[in-house]
Write a protein that binds this DNA or RNA. Structure first.
Lengths: 340, 340
DNA sequence: TTGTAGGCGTTATCAT
DNA sequence: ATGATAACGCCTACAA
């Protein structure tokens, strides 16, 4: 089982008794080729197990790699996984290949992945920015015409295309829903760091809703936890207050899970809850969870389509696409406040 | 903002007044280079924003692409997403890049993705086989020495490395747990198609446990649903029987969610349940869900390590690695059967 | 219908 | 310590 060199186009050509160019023509259905020649070439291709070398093909004159680089914080998180899935399907449908790297939410890894992808001469770059990252270093690439699209969070220090969820608007609607059901003290459980774009936007939506209803903002009703456990504790702190909130709004899926766990552990079925980001078992919870659902697949495909448009020559100025959220009413968000 | 050609090694060389080869030497720390030359080259590299073209390098070296191809049914499913995440981290730590494609559980897409990856001359192939796929076509690649590792499900028609969960053993333990708590009629809710490897194995584990306990196998207690909705209905059918089971064992996460939803809707807190595959909110359910947890990240990293070992020259015969499962006791699996 | 020449960006080989 | 030349596998452009 020796490590043999793979057959090349020239090998196939020699086998048939023609030139590499003829084999190339057959394989690419390009130009006129005698029927018999074509058949003999195809036969030799099969016999030798020849596969065209895509790397070699891509290297020709200025062509970029028929691949798109995607940098994402993690794939295990269903939100990001679904985003990646949306990207992959859209990109594959166009005959492009997807190269993926996870940044683990660190700017360093993100940068080094981007550098690797640029070295491969990817046709475009799609990035879900890590929490504390900066994208000035991509300015020259942008100017050189490389399509770059940011997902879920906008670029920092760079004007570029970007696709995000309707974070602020969705949160506002979710909190307004609680207010419409009579709540006046609504706790906010968010993730960390508080500087993260999505966190800020959702928090703003929370404040927008309070303002619109003429309710006061009480900073002490804002808690933070960057994991399920931390969010569980954060929720418990809110519940244990002398003047606890009658409703909770959670700012991301970990916070939501934490809140659900905390309420469940405390045996509290009387605290209203609206979660930003839907959860898989939402309808099996007690009470069933009312949520502001994002559409991660749509974020992925929208971003991919933006990229494809750019690859097709769209040179219009950078735009920001906003993917709407949807309030899914199931029960937990419609619980009334206790009557005093 | 003109579409400029990217600077090449020759551009850098000209800028410095040397030859491309010298630049190459500097960049690859290869052979002797005058300190001063090295510095001038590095300066020019920075000034021009030069990045080595990895495609061109690979083509010259004749080496395979420093990338690994991963074919997976979908990325949105947290199980597969986490597998992919495990693969990516391990592979990246070795300086390799991950190329991903989703097969949507169809053999055709799987094959075409594999063909694309092979065309790119990936260094290794990692595949989570689609439900109805066949891998005889990969025999020649295997013989040519290409590392190929299958994940979650073994290859069909091909002897190759493979990393799977302890499906049969885990199921046996889960069902034995129910039996130990006094149950004698245990329903099985599985996914489709019933020919799928994981489904078969887990079903075997179910039967193993019954046999070991001397309990009869009742085919009518076996139901199937390939989505949450279908599994919900399947569970309802079991619950609505004249002689319903007193406990349920679910064979995958969709089946588990369906069972949880069905029990929740029916208001049944008396039916014991052990789920194969843990769920995110398991501990917030009522009662908290007892589950046979898989370790998808470990499946991914184990597979990646197998691949890396092969790339390092390990020529030993194909092996099958089995990643253990863990029974997580939370409550739903410890409910006793009703006392008659 | 098919072939030849040349080049893509890099590195191997052999000189200088 | 550096350079010149060829080669990797493929494609474009232009013959024949």
């Amino acid at each position: 089982m020796s490590e043999m060199r793979r057959p090349t186009m020239t090998d196939v050509a020699r086998e048939v008794g023609v030139t590499a160019k003829t084999v190339s023509r057959v394989l690419n259905d390009e130009g006129p080729v005698a029927v018999e020649t074509r058949e003999r070439v195809m036969a030799a291709v099969r016999r030798l197990g020849y596969r065209p070398n895509l790397m070699a093909r891509n290297i020709r004159v200025g062509a970029r790699d028929a691949a798109i680089g995607l940098v994402i914080p993690e794939l295990g998180n269903p939100f990001f996984g679904t985003v990646a899935d949306g990207v992959e399907s859209a990109v594959r449908a166009r005959g492009l290949t997807l190269i993926v790297g996870t940044s683990d939410e660190t700017a360093d890894l993100e940068q080094s992945l981007i550098a690797t992808f640029l070295g491969r001469r990817v046709s475009a770059l799609m990035v879900v920015p890590a929490a504390a990252s900066d994208h000035r270093h991509l300015r020259s690439e942008r100017m050189a015409g490389l399509p770059i699209v940011f997902l879920d969070r906008p670029a920092v220090g760079l004007t570029a295309d970007c696709v995000v969820s309707a974070n602020r608007d969705g949160s506002r609607a979710g909190v307004a829903h609680l207010i419409a059901h009579g709540h006046r003290r609504i706790g906010f459980v968010g993730d960390l760091p508080a500087t993260l774009y999505t966190r800020r936007e959702r928090f703003q939506g929370y404040r927008d809703a309070l303002t619109a209803a003429g309710l006061p903002f009480d900073r002490s009703l804002v808690e933070t936890g960057h994991s399920v456990e931390a969010a569980t504790l954060a929720t418990q702190r809110l519940l244990d207050r002398d003047d606890p909130p009658t409703a909770l709004f959670t700012g991301n899926n970990f916070a939501s899970m934490g809140a659900v766990v905390a309420l469940s552990r405390a045996g509290r079925r009387d605290v209203a809850l609206v979660a930003f980001d839907d959860l898989p078992l939402a309808e099996a919870l007690e009470p069933p969870l009312t949520a502001v659902a994002q559409d991660p697949a749509a974020v992925g495909t929208a971003a991919a389509e933006l990229v494809l448009a750019r690859l097709d020559g769209d040179r219009s100025k950078a735009r920001r696409a906003i993917v709407p959220t949807r309030l899914v009413v199931r029960g937990s968000g419609e619980l009334p406040p206790p009557t005093p």
